[in-house]
């Protein structure tokens, strides 16, 4: 067996496995129940694509494909970051006491935590301060 044939076989097998894994992660992105599942699977697809571009540069003996992999890594990172930042509410500035806009309702949780462990220590401290 020639060594070029061996490399070709190895890289083609790895590329086929990567194609199957990308398809499986695409199904996960479709059926993901929440938005974070979808962003997570998009992130995984980006990582696998970077790996398959790196393998392709070895398969075709083309050096410039590694540059393409680098650019793809930056693009995938920026895409995930912007998709994530769109859903995070704006932060309150430091020093001022603004109420942070909460998208999830915290009232249920606070009731749940109080029913589990009574009053928390910080709330007790606040009440004492108010009385004094």
């Amino acid at each position: 067996m020639n060594i070029d044939q061996a490399y070709h076989l190895l890289f083609m097998g790895a590329l086929i496995i990567f194609a199957v894994l990308i398809g499986i992660m695409l199904i996960r992105a479709v059926i993901g129940p929440r938005i974070t599942d979808r962003i997570l699977s998009i992130n995984m697809i980006g990582t696998m694509t970077i790996c398959s571009i790196a393998i392709l540069s070895g398969l075709l003996h083309e050096g410039y494909l590694t540059d393409v992999a680098l650019i793809y890594a930056m693009l995938s990172f920026v895409a995930v970051l912007i998709l994530a930042v769109m859903y995070i509410p704006a932060k309150s500035t430091r020093g001022q006491k603004q109420s942070r806009p909460e998208m999830a309702d915290t009232a249920k949780e606070k009731k749940l935590q109080q029913s589990q462990s009574g009053e928390t220590t910080r709330q007790k401290a606040r009440k004492k301060g108010k009385k004094a």
Partner: peptide
Amino acid sequence: TSPVSTHFLSQVEYYT
């Protein structure tokens, strides 16, 4: 970059 994007994803999960 991978820990940064994971951190932002967990922030999204916490807030939404």
